[in-house]
Simulated assay, not measured.
Amino acid sequence: MRRIFFTLFFNFLIIVAFAQVQTGKASFYADKFDGVTTASGEKYRHNKFTGAHKSLPFGTKVRVTNLANDKSVEVRINDRGPWVEGRIIDLSKAAAEELGFVNKGVADVKIEIVDAGDGKTSDPGRPIEHVMVEEKEFYEFEITRLNPKGYGVQIGTYQELVNLMRLSDNLKNSYKKQVTIQVKVINGIKYYGIILGKFSSRSKAEEFREELKMKFPDAFIVEYNRL
């Protein structure tokens, strides 16, 4: 797996990516969301096996296992969320039914990556990185390749370049910390991890992670020379 680090220096305008196994709580979409456009540009359908994750690239296929009954289902990530603390995935109603927790509403689950995906939605004519932008949206930045040391706080891992630039800009302006991008190539697909800050000790990085906890509950500390 190839790794590259670089920083983005924005004028005006300008995440380990995901562990192979993740555990936490799953919820599912309410019926009222059927037909609503998801973050990938697809419409949510309750009878399809899809899900929402905060950082996994669109098109990623994951196996979700209900830890209470050991039932499993494979879903494709096509949306962002859930935004409730402690929840790691939102599932379609069909997937929740397969896992047997519709009546309970939430379940303790394990997520495992099955396939990193091919970067396409179910519509072969539209790329998954379909992101609505303003008619005139410009970004200017300089890139410096790095061999960083110390510690940082990884916010998430992304594949969509527009989202990467927007979030990097917001983080830099909000927290006044250096934004470092880690480029990973997995199965021929590039992923971009956003790491905030450069700290000389883990304790200082932990203090900053606590500051981010409310907005980014899944943020975690990384040691640059071990990535």
Rank of each mutant, 00 (worst) to 15 (best):
A26S: 09
G81F: 07
V21W: 11
R209L: 10
A30G: 15
K184M: 12
V109H: 06
L196W: 09
Q159K: 05
Y158H: 08
I88F: 02
D115T: 00
R80D: 01
N69S: 06
A19G: 15
Q22N: 15
A205R: 01
I111F: 04
H46C: 13
G119C: 02
E97S: 01
D108T: 09
N11D: 14
A94W: 02
S168K: 08
K136F: 10
P148Q: 10
S203F: 12
A219P: 05
G100H: 00
N69K: 08
M132K: 10
F199W: 12
I89Y: 02
R2A: 13
K61L: 07
S168A: 04
V21C: 14
Q159S: 11
A116M: 12
R63Q: 11
I113H: 03
I77Q: 02
K177I: 09
K215A: 14
N187T: 07
A107F: 06
G156C: 05
K213H: 12
F141H: 04
K204F: 13
T23W: 15
T50G: 01
N163T: 10
V106G: 01
K120P: 00
N69T: 09
A26N: 04
P124I: 03
N173K: 12
S174E: 13
S27M: 08
V73F: 05
K177T: 04
E97D: 08
N147T: 12
Q178F: 10
I113M: 01
I155N: 00
P57H: 11
N78T: 05
T38C: 12
F220R: 13
E98H: 00
Q182L: 14
L91E: 01
A39S: 14
W83N: 03
M132H: 14
T180H: 05
I15G: 15
E142Q: 12
F9S: 13
P124K: 06
E206V: 09
D90A: 02
G193V: 05
K184Y: 10
A26P: 09
G188P: 00
G100D: 04
M165P: 05
L146D: 03
M132Y: 15
T157A: 06
V153C: 05
S122P: 04
L8H: 01
F58T: 06
E211C: 09
K54R: 13
Y175W: 09
V162Q: 03
R145N: 10
G150I: 04
I143H: 09
K190L: 08
A52S: 13
Y139E: 05
E206R: 13
K43P: 11
T50F: 02
K54Y: 10
F101W: 02
L164N: 06
F9Y: 15
K71I: 03
T121R: 02
K190N: 13
L164Y: 07
V114T: 00
G59V: 10
L91M: 01
L196I: 05
V62G: 06
G35E: 08
F208I: 07
L91W: 00
S55V: 12
G51I: 08
D90H: 01
F58H: 06
A205Q: 02
L171M: 07
L161P: 01
A107Y: 00
K120W: 11
V109P: 03
G125R: 07
Q22M: 15
I14P: 10
R87N: 00
N170Y: 15
T157Q: 02
N225T: 11
I221V: 14
I189P: 04
